[in-house]
Amino acid sequence: MIHLSAFADEISPDLGEQIAVLQEEQIHFIDLRGAWNSNVLDLSDQQLQEVKQALETAGIGVAAIGSPIGKVSITSDFAEHMQRFERALYVAEYLGSPYVRIFSFYPPTLGEALHQDQQDEPGIDAYRADVLQRLAALTEKAAKAGITLVHENEKMIYGDTIARNVDLLQSVNHSRLRAVFDPANYLECQQEPYPQAYEAVKPWLEYVHVKDVNAQGTLVVAGEGEARWPDILQRLRSDGYDGFLSLEPHLAAAGQFQGFSGADRFRQASQALQRLLREINWEYA
């Protein structure tokens, strides 16, 4: 059976409000990205203890740690970033999360890359070997901790396009590095999410982020954009997918490190997804 999760910091920075809305929407898992205006990796041990206690009391499990690992320049200090990654693994273990979400690094100068064609970014292509070496190192460390990394196809990182995403997954070739399928992100990179991206990453697909974008480039609830969510859900079901569908709607704001929807718009996103699931009689928890 599939399970619903959510980046609940899209609801509010306050953990209590995050939990309250998740309970209202009968969502029993969270992708923990932040609380109290702090990134999950910047929470103190005392704050993590408070998070753990609050979630356990509410009956909410941690599906994934929504870390920013890999969302830095490929030329940044990797030893320093590895220390931050070790914190991510600690947080995952402490909160009982099987997954840590990661990215595959920005070009050296993001400002310049933003003016390049998304289909052709020689800035990051030139660093392919470095990207693969870093991802392999992260994956090996995660494997030793018993944690699985799920790579998100975020705009402007190495693995944003279908071809480069498949390249990194094939090249690292490790059971502890799997793919997030984020259809809206593919659309923002002028890639076809379904069926093209889906078919390409299917061998590694282990996590799904739910958001949608319309033809004007505006983020909308699932089913109201160009991502073909009804078709995607039908296909996931027929292929036997039994993982998480994680809401990340970005309906009010979409920043480099965090999106936001607010409680009311998050509820709209949740209800739109659950309506799509009911329409195909796909049971979820």
Rank of each mutant, 00 (worst) to 15 (best):
H151N: 15
W204D: 02
L4K: 09
L15I: 01
Q47M: 11
G225L: 04
A222G: 06
H115K: 12
G146Y: 06
I232A: 07
E86P: 04
V208N: 05
P193A: 09
A285H: 14
R178M: 15
A142I: 06
A253S: 15
L219G: 03
L205M: 02
H3R: 15
L277C: 12
A285P: 04
E10H: 02
H151G: 10
D239G: 00
R178L: 14
V201H: 00
A6W: 01
E226T: 09
T139Q: 02
L149Y: 03
Q116C: 11
R275H: 15
Q196V: 13
K141D: 01
E224M: 02
L114A: 12
V210I: 15
T57E: 13
E192M: 10
R134Y: 01
E140T: 13
L149H: 06
L132F: 07
G66M: 08
R84D: 12
Q119V: 08
L273G: 03
A35D: 01
A137M: 06
Y158G: 08
D120K: 07
A184P: 06
V201C: 01
G123K: 06
S5T: 10
E140W: 03
M1H: 11
G223C: 07
Y127N: 11
V40G: 04
D42R: 11
I2S: 08
E248N: 10
F85L: 03
E192N: 13
D182N: 11
N39T: 10
A227E: 09
V166Y: 03
V210D: 05
E17L: 00
A272E: 02
A64P: 09
Y94V: 07
L273S: 03
Y207P: 11
A136H: 11
E188L: 15
I11E: 00
A269Q: 05
L187R: 14
E121R: 15
